[in-house]
Amino acid sequence: MDILELAFMQRALLAALLVGVTAPAIGIYLVQRRQALMGDGIGHVALTGVGLGFLLNTSPVWVATAVCVVGAVVMELIRSYGKARGDIALAMLFYGGMAGGVMLMALSPNGSNANLTTYLFGSITTVSEQDIVAICLLAAFVIVTTVGLRRQLFAICQDEEFARVTGLPVRLLNLLVAVTAAVTVTVAMRVVGLLLVSALMVIPVAASQQITRSFATTFAMAVAIGVLVTLSGTVTSYYVDVPSGATIVLLAIGVFIALTLLAAPLARKRADKAALAERCTLEDAAAPGAPGTADDVRV
């Protein structure tokens, strides 16, 4: 395929691959904790970082990373300490971040509306050599964290109260989740854009869990779906000349719908089997979890 010989497409596909892996990998913990929209919040805050990067004439990726990390840590502190007014504080942070970004962009000499749009909605084919180095480093951090600490992160996101009584450093791990989510936002911002980042954190996970029963399978399948849609979306946007971010997100929603339709008969079959198992327990027959169920499905 000739598109693999184009340097900018090589970069685009590498960036797409890394986003496809990292966004669902951290997103699954946010979904597990029922904080699916946290990525969206960080995306808003990131815009201030991008604007700052333009104003200071430095790499927007690194400045955005720094600003996102600060924003995510503040969000985590609001979540763990803030009670009644927590959501108001978050709203301030989100919209302040977005407005600040637009303002800074307007003030900076080489910031333009076109620039703003590439960061808001992604522009994968403009990923530079410098960007790709940053994206690789940041993605490595996200993968090491989300895979290496999966048992610990699973525990704190499943039942934080219990996790604290195991003596895990829960506060530290919570901050790590926030920082990792922030880093993922900047990894993904050139590919899908800040407004659509959260979609790639949430939709592959939601699609995957339509047909899975275990966390491990959900994780693996969400990453597989993430990679599938980012790569195919990138290729599509090259041939058809449509924005990459929108293409990727629409493809992800397509996968979600397909798996949801697939899941309905599957769930019915499982329910029938469970009912059968329930009835047979007295006779000590038909153990549940027999082979051939959807947890064995791999993409």
Binding site: L149, R151, F154, Q158, T166, L168, R213
Partner: peptide, 26 residues
């Protein structure tokens, strides 16, 4: 608690394994 479930599917073994973190920590 009334439930052991979170926002993502998890198996019985995965949930119970979280208890071992009291010993394995990180």
């Amino acid at each position: 608690r009334t439930t052991a479930a979170g926002g993502v599917p998890a198996t019985v073994r995965e949930v119970v394994s979280a208890g071992r973190l009291a010993r394995t920590k990180l």
